[in-house]
């Protein structure tokens, strides 16, 4: 149990996907202008991350490794993730139009989100167990939501503040992210 908790914390805080490992930066800068959008995007990404790490773990351990075709991992993982996201979009559209309006528009973006393929690759390369990969992917998802929420709160404030002309928009967002990332580095001192 302790191991699972430490894996969860490792990917939520110490190796925060956005601020320390630079995975999933496109939504981080693209969707972080409004708090409500950021939370929805974060939830959608987290769900896809957990589900796709379960699927890729099963595929890796029951197909790739027994047949000695581990070198195919990138091709297989991205195909599985892309088709899973497509399927999810179709299911959500058929079953709940409200949920589709809230989360559905982000789903096509998630296919090419580095964070989703990233967690699948990490689980595979580090050789995590089944529960371990669920713990690491939920940790990564929570860390993703955390960073996205903090950033969108800050950017709502930034809109109202006076920023030097040439730093407006993306540049100041990067500099803000730099300070945020500095504060996340201090989690490196956690003994986990």
């Amino acid at each position: 149990m302790n191991e699972l908790l430490s894996l969860f914390l490792r990917y939520a805080l110490v190796n925060n996907f956005i601020l320390v490992m630079f995975l999933g930066l496109c939504p981080f800068f693209g969707v972080s202008k409004k708090l409500s959008d950021a939370i929805r995007m974060g939830l959608a990404v987290t769900f896809v991350m957990i589900a796709s790490s379960i699927i890729t773990w099963l595929i890796a351990n029951f197909i790739l490794i027994p047949f000695n075709i581990e070198f195919m991992e990138t091709v297989v993982f991205i195909l599985v993730i892309a088709s899973f996201v497509q399927l999810l979009e179709m299911v959500i559209r058929k079953t709940s139009i409200g949920l589709y309006r809230a989360l559905g528009i982000y789903l096509p973006l998630i296919t090419t989100n580095c964070a989703v393929l990233g967690i699948a690759e990490i689980n595979f390369l580090e050789g995590f167990s089944f529960l371990g990969s669920i713990a690491s992917s939920s940790g990564a998802g929570v860390g993703f939501i955390l960073a996205l929420t903090i950033m969108s709160g800050l950017r709502e404030r930034l809109e109202l503040s006076e920023v030097p002309g040439s730093l407006k928009g993306l540049p100041i967002a990067f500099i803000t992210a730099s300070i945020l990332s500095l504060s996340f580095l201090t989690f490196g001192g956690l003994r986990i």
């Binding site: 490992m21 040439s166 730093l167 993306l170 540049p171 100041i172 730099s178 580095l185």
Partner: peptide, 22 residues
């Protein structure tokens, strides 16, 4: 050392973007 750690990357790219805009 700050610059080879993650925050340095964000800072450098932010400043370069600002410089190019300027």
């Amino acid at each position: 050392l700050f610059f080879i750690m993650p925050p340095g990357a964000f800072l450098i790219i932010g400043l370069l973007l600002g410089l190019f805009k300027r």
